[in-house]
Structure formats: structure tokens, C-alpha cells
């Protein structure tokens, strides 16, 4: 096991270096430059050129990359071009709200998806099954911006029940109830999408298991159908679902770009959009690097979790 972990960690290093190189090239190939975004519109081309020179943007890309890499290895992610704050601080500020939003969305998404998926599978081809299948396709197909704007229109504009966006009412200090109110709509939108996808997986995985011989053995013992389904079948059905849930973990940190934009949620997704708009290279690079790390870690964690859940894997 220890050698397996070591091997996975060593493989991760070239992958991460590759990711940074690709990102650096792509970002630098994008038209425009950060100076144009923040200088005074009256600035002369000479002044802009001077500023670019000062920021090192005129150096060859390779030099810029190694300069960035060098400071990264010293634990320094640089300063944001748009807010002049250290990138590390910017990321830390945004990570909390995203983790909260995405964590709740994933939690509620699964809370809906797992029981409904099970029910849908045990009552295959019933009206309930068709209804949940319909709901899940709806959840998958409705774009988040549409569902988000629709929810804002109904619950905020028409019914005036919930706030339109943000994390708390400005100037109110943000009490618990206020924060919960701000969370409801974005969590609803994200959880709907997650539940839609996961219901399909839970149902399919459960159907695979429901025909297995060992369930007949369990029934032959005289166990109640509830125990047969939720103990004997579910534990088997959840094994493949671990992988699918593992794929969502990066979103916990990476955030939901569109939903955060719609609800002005001050998280990583919104930061990503803002950084792209303002050509904030250091922040963008940091976001990309962080996302890459999280993807690798999540995949690794999924593999470990898999071997915990499935005893047949442990010994190999």
C-alpha cells in the first residue's frame, strides 16, 4: 500500500508540471494584456509599454514561466493584477464560500438522488420510475443559468421570499438565518443538477445488483425486503457510485462558474470569471494549479475509498 501511494504521488509531479505549462501557454496566447485592463484610458502607448516592461510582460514566455515557477517553489503565488492582494489570500477568501455552497449542493443532491435512485430501481417500470426518470433528465438538461434566473424571478422578484444573490445582506453583518436564505436558491439550482445526474447512476447501479443471486440468499434467510435492499443491495450498488461522486469533489474547490455568476456568490467560480475578464494571470494560474491538484487528490482518494468499500480489491 505504501509503495502504491508513493507511486501515485510521483506520477502526480510530472502531471502537475504539464498542467502549469499548458495553462501558461494558453493564458499568454489569449489576446489582450492585463495592463490595458487597469491603466487610465488616457494613457499613451509609451506609458503602457513602460508598465508592461516593468511587470515583465515583455520577456519571452519561457522566462516568464520560470520566474512564476521559481516563486511558486518558494511558496509565493504572486500578486493579483486586479486587486493587488497576494493571490494566496484571494484564493483563501474565496475557497470558504465555494466549499460551503458546493458541499451543501453535493450533500443535498446525494440526499435526494440515493433514496430516489433506489426507489426507482426497486420499482422499475412503475409510474414512480418514469416520473423520477423524467425529473432526472430535466435536472440534467436544464442549464444552470436558466434554472437560476427562473428561480430568482419566481422566488425573489415575484414572491419576494429570498434574496437574489450574494452571501449575505450587505451591512447586516450576516446572521445565520440571513446566510441560510442566501444559500437556498444557489444550492437548489446546483443540487437539482447533481441529483439529476446521480439518480441515473444510482438507479442503474442498483438495477445491476438487484438481480444478483446473493439477494435471493438474503431473502431465503427470511430478511425483510427493506434490509435486503438497503443493506445487501445498497452496499454493492454504492461501490461504482463512489467513482461518480469522486468526480464531483474537484467542484467543491473549483466552484460552479455559472451558478456563482448568476447568484453573485463570492466563490472560486466567480473569481475565475473575474480573473479571466481582467487578464489577472497570477490568479488564473493559481486557480488552474489548485484545480489540477484537487483533481489528482480526488482521484487518488476515490481509489483509496474504493478499496475500502470493496473487499475484493484490498488484497490486490
Amino acid at each position: 500500500m505504501a509503495s502504491y501511494i508513493m507511486r501515485r504521488l510521483l506520477i502526480a509531479i510530472p502531471v502537475l508540471i504539464g498542467v502549469t505549462i499548458f495553462n501558461f501557454i494558453i493564458i499568454n496566447m489569449a489576446p489582450g494584456n492585463p495592463v490595458e485592463m487597469f491603466v487610465n484610458p488616457d494613457a499613451t502607448p509609451a506609458q503602457i509599454e513602460l508598465e508592461k516592461e516593468r511587470m515583465g510582460l515583455n520577456d519571452p514566455m519561457v522566462i516568464q514561466y520560470f520566474r512564476w515557477m521559481n516563486s511558486l517553489l518558494h511558496g509565493d503565488l504572486g500578486y493579483s493584477y486586479s486587486t493587488y492582494e497576494p493571490v494566496t489570500q484571494v484564493l483563501l477568501e474565496r475557497m470558504g464560500p465555494t466549499l460551503l455552497l458546493m458541499g451543501l449542493a453535493l450533500f443535498f443532491g446525494l440526499l435526494i438522488a440515493i433514496p430516489i435512485g433506489i426507489l426507482s430501481a426497486t420499482k422499475q417500470y412503475s409510474k414512480l420510475d418514469y416520473a423520477t426518470t423524467g425529473f432526472s433528465f430535466l435536472g440534467i438538461s436544464i442549464p444552470h443559468f436558466f434554472l437560476g434566473l427562473g428561480a430568482i424571478y419566481i422566488f425573489s422578484v415575484q414572491l419576494q421570499l429570498l434574496p437574489t444573490g450574494g452571501m449575505m445582506t450587505l451591512g447586516s453583518g450576516g446572521g445565520f438565518v440571513d446566510r441560510v436564505e442566501h444559500l437556498i436558491l444557489p444550492v437548489f439550482v446546483l443540487a437539482t443538477g447533481i441529483a439529476g445526474k446521480k439518480i441515473r447512476y444510482v438507479r442503474a447501479s442498483m438495477l445491476d445488483v438487484l438481480g444478483q443471486d446473493y439477494l435471493r440468499t438474503a431473502r431465503a434467510k427470511g430478511l425483510r425486503e427493506f434490509v435486503v435492499t438497503n443493506k445487501h443491495a445498497l452496499k454493492n450498488a454504492l461501490i461504482p457510485i463512489i467513482t461518480v461522486i469522486g468526480l464531483e469533489i474537484p467542484l467543491l474547490i473549483g466552484g460552479a462558474v455559472i451558478t456563482e455568476q448568476v447568484f453573485q456568490w463570492p466563490g472560486m467560480g466567480l473569481l475565475t470569471i473575474q480573473s479571466i475578464m481582467s487578464r489577472d494571470y497570477p490568479t488564473l494560474m493559481a486557480i488552474n494549479l489548485l484545480t489540477a491538484v484537487i483533481v489528482l487528490v480526488a482521484n487518488f482518494a476515490t481509489d483509496i475509498l474504493y478499496s475500502v468499500a470493496d473487499p475484493r480489491i484490498k488484497n490486490n
Binding site: 443471486d213 446473493y214 440468499t217 438474503a218 431465503a220 445487501h232 452496499k235 454493492n236 470493496d310 473487499p311
Partner: peptide, 13 residues
């Protein structure tokens, strides 16, 4: 007792 001993026990318990 069933026919298939390979599949009649639950693999995860």
C-alpha cells in the same frame, strides 16, 4: 441452498 456458490454470498459482507 442455491446452485451457484460463487454468487450466492454477498461479496461485500
Amino acid at each position: 441452498i442455491f446452485q451457484e456458490p460463487m454468487t450466492s454470498l454477498n461479496p461485500v459482507f
